[in-house]
Design a protein around this nucleic acid. Structure first.
Lengths: 132, 132
DNA sequence: AGTATTTATTTAGCTAGGTAAATAAATTAG
DNA sequence: CTAATTTATTTACCTAGCTAAATAAATACT
């Protein structure tokens, strides 16, 4: 087994666990945060826009949004096209996002700070080269 | 959000999906294969040895081994220390592993072939630098 | 207009990771 | 030797990805 895969999968798991650990203080999981961040940048989005943007299947987003809704982070609004649901951040989310973003920035600096900007670019280039 | 994380998580998910796709012909999932491969290299192992080696929590391995056992890939044998269960590959697994290994090698070459050996080493070095 | 197809979301059920707590055997302490 | 602690495994339950199929609304076809 090429050690690249093992290393890649391990690090991916490790980093999401660390991210979850750090987000615990805000009562969030990393994938929930990914959705909030996405909504923060793009404004209200339909479920389809979200899963296409995050490159994930629809049912994962349905489940996550349902959870985020009951936790009070987002609202599901019926669209003009009545098939679609438009998801928006709640006032509660808008209020808390700045502190969370700060937490994330500290985390990122801690995790990726040992790499120069060139190394980070190089890393992404190498990642891009891996495909079927 | 630093694009490095998004890229890393995406690629990790993409590669496991591809691996699952390729392993479908052998009726295996990628994490099941990781365990079989591990047993193939090290010989019989206890559950604890397996989860420590794969750097995963114990319950994940308990579940995976239970599944692999009912599918006929491994056997659980009670150890001399009666707390521990020793896991061994079944004759069925021994028989089929060479073909599976071949599938994996083709997959790896396809996925990682665009990188030179130096780039692969560089990639792993950069990965190692990411930690808290 | 009425039917067929497409599109958006949801539901059901699978693997796969995690934590917390239960159980049972082995080991250590007194 | 008995009681306390440690160790190995399992169980229960959570998030998070996936596929396949159900449902409902919109669109296209004839």
């Amino acid at each position: 087994m090429n050690p690249i895969f093992h290393a890649l999968f391990q690090k991916s798991r490790y980093l999401t666990n660390c991210l979850n650990e750090v987000l615990k203080q805000h009562n969030l999981y990393s994938s929930q945060w990914a959705i909030l961040y996405c909504l923060h940048n793009h404004g209200p989005m339909t479920l389809t826009q979200i899963w296409k943007y995050l490159n994930v299947e629809a049912p994962s987003i349905t489940r996550a949004i349902t959870r985020l809704e009951t936790l009070g982070w987002v609202l599901r609004i019926e669209g003009e096209d009545k098939r679609e649901k438009i998801v928006t951040l709640s006032p509660f989310a808008e209020e808390h996002l700045p502190a969370i973003t700060k937490t994330i920035l500290v985390f990122e600096e801690e995790m990726v700070g040992a790499l120069t900007v060139e190394e980070q670019q190089q890393f992404i280039i190498l990642l891009e080269k891996m495909k079927g």
